[in-house]
C-alpha cells in the first residue's frame, strides 16, 4: 500500500503521481490530505484501489474505467461523470450531477446528493450502472435517464422532510428508480409512473442494499423493512409525437 500526501499538490501533479504509481504496478494507494483536487481517477483504466481522505474536487472518477475508490469524506460535483466501470464508495455527501451519463459501474453514497443526480445514465449490453444514495436527493433526480438503476434510501430523514426534490425523472426513457417510502405524485415528471416492485426487484434490492449496508456498517434488514416504490418510464420514446413529419 502506497501513501501519497496530497497536501499542497496541484491536481495535475497529484493525478500524474496517482497514474504513474498505478502504471508501475501499485494496486492500492492511499491519498491523504486531499483538499479539492479535481479529476482524481479521471479516465483511469484497469484494476486498483484508491482510498481518499479529505474532500476530492469536482469530476472525481470521471470517465473512469475499473478502479475502486473509497472516499472518507464528502465529494463535490460530477462524481462518476461519464464513468464506464468501477466502484466509488463515499462516506459522506455528494453534490450535483453525480453519475452524469454514467454507463457502467457503481456509486454508493452514504449521505445526501444535490441536483440532477443520475442525469442521462444509460445501460449498454452487460453494463448496468447503479447509484445508491443513503440520504435524500435534490431536484431533477434521474432526469433524462436512459438506463441503469437509481436507489434512494432516505435514511435519517427528519419528520416531514421530503426524500426527493421536484421534477423527479423528467424525460426519463429507460432504466429504473427505486425510492424507499412514498413520493408525492406532484413531484414526479410526466414521463414516469410509480409501480410496486416485483419479486425479482425485491431480490435485487436485497443484494444492492446488502452491499450498501456492508460498505457503511448498517443493518440491511432494517433498511429493507420499509417498502419501496419503483419508477419506470411510460415509454422509451418520450418525444416521439412532437414533430410534424
Amino acid at each position: 500500500m502506497e501513501v501519497v500526501n496530497a497536501r499542497g499538490l496541484s491536481y495535475q501533479a497529484l493525478n500524474e503521481t496517482v497514474r504513474s504509481l498505478l502504471d508501475n504496478g501499485h494496486r492500492e494507494l492511499v491519498l491523504k490530505g486531499v483538499n479539492g483536487q479535481r479529476y482524481i481517477g479521471a479516465g483511469v483504466q484497469g484494476q486498483g484501489r484508491l482510498e481518499i481522505f479529505g474532500v476530492p474536487g469536482n469530476n472525481l472518477a470521471a470517465l473512469m474505467d475499473g478502479l475502486e475508490i473509497e472516499v472518507f469524506g464528502n465529494v463535490q460535483d460530477g462524481v462518476g461523470n461519464t464513468m464506464n466501470d468501477g466502484t466509488v464508495i463515499i462516506h459522506g455527501h455528494a453534490t450535483d450531477i453525480a453519475g452524469y451519463s454514467m454507463r457502467g459501474g457503481r456509486i454508493f453514497i452514504r449521505g445526501n446528493v444535490g441536483y440532477r443526480v443520475g442525469i442521462h445514465m444509460k445501460a449498454f449490453r452487460n453494463k448496468n450502472p447503479l447509484i445508491v444514495i443513503g440520504g435524500k436527493a435534490g431536484d431533477f433526480f434521474g432526469e433524462y435517464m436512459a438506463g441503469g438503476t437509481l436507489v434512494l434510501l432516505g435514511l435519517d430523514l427528519q419528520p416531514g422532510e421530503a426524500i426527493v426534490g421536484n421534477f423527479v425523472a423528467t424525460g426519463m426513457h429507460g432504466g429504473e428508480i427505486f425510492i424507499r417510502g412514498q413520493v408525492d405524485p406532484y413531484r414526479l415528471g410526466k414521463e414516469v409512473k410509480a409501480i410496486k416492485p416485483t419479486a425479482a426487484d425485491q431480490q435485487r434490492l436485497q443484494d444492492i442494499v446488502g452491499d450498501f449496508a456492508r460498505y457503511f456498517d448498517l443493518e440491511a434488514e432494517k433498511i429493507l423493512a420499509r417498502p419501496f416504490i419503483k419508477l419506470i418510464p411510460y415509454n422509451k420514446r418520450p418525444y416521439g409525437t412532437m414533430y410534424a413529419y
Binding site: 440532477r116 444509460k122 436512459a146 429507460g174 422509451k236
Partner: peptide
Amino acid sequence: MIPEGTDALSPAPHHDIYSIEDLKQLVFT
C-alpha cells in the same frame, strides 16, 4: 452505446457546464 430502438436524447445544455468555469472543468477532465 445505448439500447436499440430507444430515442437518443441530447439535452440542450451539458448539465455539467453552466459557466465558463464549468467548461474549463470539462476541458481539463
